[in-house]
Simulated scan of single mutants.
Amino acid sequence: MKQSVVTRLAASEPSDQLVIKKRSRVAETWTYVKRNYDLYLFILPVLVYFAIFHYIPMYGVQLAFRDYNPIDGILGSKWVGLEYFERFFNSAYFWTIIKNTVVISLYSLLIGFPAPLILALLLNQLPSQKYKRFIQTVTYAPHFISVVVIVGILMVFLSPSTGIVNTMITFFGGEPINFMAKPKLFSTLYVFSDIWQTAGWGAIIYLAALAAISPELHEAAMIDGATKLQRIRHIDIPGIMPTVIILLILSLGGVMSLGFEKVYLMQNQLNVSSSEIIATYVYKVGLQNGDFSFSTAVGLFNTVINFVLLVIVNRFAKRVSEHSLW
């Protein structure tokens, strides 16, 4: 009998120790929070923003699984399961929409992702700081131009009758081209206009990473007779590779989240066969046709694909290199 009591007491000691350790950790955490309360107050608006505009709206995701009726509300609407997902997968537009979204996204990633990196490497090699700041200002200024204005500039420049591009073509004896009516040219116009608008702004991140590289490495390489290209290859690129990998993971994770505004503004009845993407399809079905449940299902499918791609790419990057998001 005495042995059983002793055994029970001995068995209870580890659990009591765990409780004590947990309480001490909680006390230490609260002490740390009280000591640094001003920092937590500083990030409080950000937390409130994400809670209101990113987490609370997730309540409406269940629209994708209900036959939504505004009178009955979300919870009062009939539960239909995966009906809208099956409807989207079996629709005649499914493969066309997926193909257009993937093609434009990968094209933009293949051409647009290296553009700010190359621009930053070139700017970093300029000896004159005044000229460097001038070029940097000129290149990132288009970032502050609205998408509507950018598309308006495209329309004016590529106009088949008065556009400067077609004026140059006819000057050299060619025939005017209606660029905005050519489905094959839509992705090229979208990607290269996007590079012009965003390359300078994106180069700022890489310039900040290049500034963290020790100048002594370049001085030692110059003493050894290394050229600029050799210093870029063996010093600059390895130095900013962690930043490149993180941005590449984020870009690949959002490969299906193509911007809606610019595509919709550039879209017309003549190029819709190559410009209809998931974002524009959701807008037309959800807001213009009022089919909220179906559009929510399509949007949720797009989000799930992006999340899966992000996890896969992050895991692959972690195995190949030492850098990843988590």
Results as ranks from 00 to 15, higher is better:
T29D: 12
K34L: 12
L121N: 07
A208K: 03
K21E: 11
R25E: 15
N314T: 15
F157E: 11
G73I: 08
L158F: 00
V191Q: 09
A27S: 11
N166T: 01
L106F: 06
V61M: 04
V308K: 04
T167M: 03
F50S: 12
G60T: 10
W196I: 02
R315W: 09
L248I: 10
I177L: 00
L300Y: 10
E83Q: 10
Y55E: 14
H234K: 11
V80W: 06
S105G: 06
G60D: 10
A10L: 14
L39F: 13
M180L: 13
L217N: 09
D224N: 13
V156K: 03
A317T: 15
S293H: 05
E86Y: 04
I71Y: 08
H54Y: 13
I150L: 07
T101M: 02
Y59N: 02
P160G: 01
Y107V: 10
N271Q: 04
N69H: 00
L250H: 09
K2L: 13
K182M: 10
K318T: 14
M256I: 05
V311D: 01
F50Y: 13
S159T: 06
V48E: 08
F113L: 09
G290M: 10
S274E: 11
M222S: 15
I278F: 05
A199P: 05
I246F: 08
A297S: 14
T188R: 01
T31R: 15
H234W: 08
F65D: 02
S193Y: 02
T198P: 00
V148G: 03
A297V: 14
A221M: 07
V147W: 07
V46N: 10
E322V: 07
F292P: 07
R25D: 15
I145M: 05
H323N: 14
D16L: 14
H218S: 13
V48Q: 06
Y93G: 06
G60Q: 06
L189A: 01
T31H: 13
I153T: 12
D67C: 09
P116Y: 07
I52P: 02
V191F: 04
A11W: 08
L185H: 06
L210V: 13
A317F: 05
I164N: 04
I305F: 03
I150F: 05
V138F: 04
N302Q: 14
V165P: 08
M266Y: 07
V103P: 05
V5Y: 05
I232R: 05
F50I: 15
F89C: 03
Q269K: 00
V311Q: 09
F94N: 00
G225S: 12
L265N: 02
